[in-house]
Amino acid sequence: MNFRRVMMLVNLGNEYLKVIINTKGAEVTSIKNDQNIEYIWQADSKFWGRHAPILFPIVGRLKDDQYEYDGKKYSMGQHGFAREMEFSVTKRTNDAVTMQLKSNASTFEMYPFHFTLTISYLLSGSKLKAEISVTNDGQNEMLFSVGAHPAFNVPLDNLSEKDYSEYYINVFPQRTYKQVPFKAPYIDLNSVSDIDLSKPLQLKHEIFYDDAKVIKTNDKKLICRLGNKNFDHGVEVEANKPEYAGLWSAKNAPFVCLEPWWGVADDINADGILAHKNGIKHLLSEQKYNTNYSIEIF
């Protein structure tokens, strides 16, 4: 596959935040507050060499990294190809930018649909808002999933507290959720259990040794809040009607991901037919799908 490697870093700023977004993948690579504290994981490849990729046109791993559509088999890597591709900047101001990826010869090799994927970022006070829009530019129904994968430093840079276990995650609404277990790299829908998130989830590296904690959500709004019991600094990810949320870190790594997903990885018993994929979305010709999430610093 020949991906374009030209990339540009776009700087956004206001009185509260300085943000850097890479046109490769439309990926947020830095969020610093007015005290110069870096919140975004800085992609140390020793653990995980990404910051906050956009997941499209799939979320997670396909069974055997392939799927079938209209009688033909296609191959695609984990989380799709958008995170590897160059987006064009279509609009930019000091505190906002809009980036687009359109289907092309490279994407057609992996994904036989005509599309426009638009990611718009806007600073609003101490919050970075992200609007995700998918347009079906083709004549046939389009099948896709989309998600976000932001990773945050734990511990936060420039703070004296260096203990991972001092951090916690609160999920709102606070209640018991259905947890979808991994038989890595796939989910196992036959082994769904309950996870009590009515109280904070205290961070320990061991809780991610079996891969991500994935919860099923039917809420209009989901908030995941990363905080520290000894400091006021933290981050909050709010998502509009996500179907799933992933909490993840690499083994013993100093970061945690708070991931809103509008889709999910293949089940261990998936038949490989894209239309049958769990969490897949169907979009008619010329229709547009919109969703959003935000990252708020405190």
Rank of each mutant, 00 (worst) to 15 (best):
Asn2Ser: 08
Val10Ser: 00
Asn11Gln: 12
Gly13Tyr: 14
Gly13Lys: 14
Asn14Arg: 12
Tyr16Trp: 08
Ile21Gln: 02
Asn22Arg: 11
Asn22Pro: 07
Ala26Val: 01
Ile31Cys: 01
Ile31Lys: 01
Asn33Met: 07
Asp34Val: 07
Gln35Glu: 14
Ile37Trp: 00
Glu38Ala: 03
Tyr39Gly: 02
Gln42Val: 04
Gln42Ser: 15
Ala43Arg: 04
Ala43Leu: 05
Ser45Asn: 13
Phe47Met: 05
Ala52Val: 09
Pro53Trp: 04
Leu55Val: 10
Ile58Thr: 12
Gly60Met: 07
Arg61Asn: 14
Lys63Thr: 06
Lys63Met: 05
Asp64Ser: 12
Asp64His: 12
Asp64Ala: 09
Glu68Val: 13
Asp70Arg: 09
Asp70Glu: 15
Lys73Asn: 13
Met76Ile: 07
Met76Thr: 02
Gln78Val: 15
Gly80Thr: 04
Phe81Leu: 12
Phe87Ser: 02
Thr90Lys: 06
Arg92Met: 10
Val97Asp: 04
Leu101Arg: 08
Lys102Val: 04
Lys102Met: 05
Ser103Met: 08
Ser103Leu: 04
Thr107Glu: 01
Thr107Tyr: 02
Met110Thr: 08
Tyr111Met: 07
Tyr111Lys: 05
His114Trp: 06
Phe115Asp: 00
Thr116Asn: 11
Leu117Trp: 00
Ser120Met: 01
Tyr121Arg: 06
Leu122Tyr: 07
Ser126Leu: 00
Ser126Gln: 02
Leu128Gln: 05
Leu128Asn: 09
Ala130Pro: 00
Ser133Val: 11
Asn136Lys: 10
Gly138Pro: 04
Gly138Ala: 08
Asn140Ile: 11
Leu143Val: 06
Leu143Ile: 05
Ser145Ala: 14
Val146Glu: 02
Val146Asp: 00
Ala151Gly: 13
Pro155Thr: 02
Asp163Met: 07
Gln179Asp: 06
Gln179Met: 14
Pro181Trp: 12
Pro181Cys: 08
Ala184Met: 09
Ile187Phe: 09
Asp188Gly: 00
Ser191Ala: 15
Ser193Asp: 12
Leu197Asn: 11
Gln202Lys: 15
Leu203Gly: 03
His205Lys: 13
His205Glu: 10
Ile207Phe: 10
Asp211Arg: 03
Ala212Gly: 07
Lys213Gly: 04
Thr217Asp: 04
Asn218Lys: 13
Lys221Thr: 15
Leu222Ala: 01
Gly227Thr: 11
Asn228Leu: 08
Lys229Tyr: 11
Asn230Ala: 12
Asn230Phe: 13
Asp232Val: 13
His233Phe: 02
Gly234Asn: 07
Val237Trp: 10
Ala239Leu: 06
Asn240Thr: 14
Asn240Cys: 08
Glu243Trp: 03
Ala250Phe: 05
Lys251Pro: 07
Lys251Ala: 14
Lys251Asp: 15
Pro254Asn: 06
Pro254Gln: 06
Phe255Thr: 02
Trp261Val: 06
Ala265Met: 08
Asp271Met: 02
Ala275Asp: 04
His276Val: 05
His276Pro: 03
Ile280Ser: 08
Leu284Ala: 15
Tyr293Arg: 03
Glu296Pro: 02
Glu296Thr: 15
Ile297Asn: 09
Phe298Pro: 10
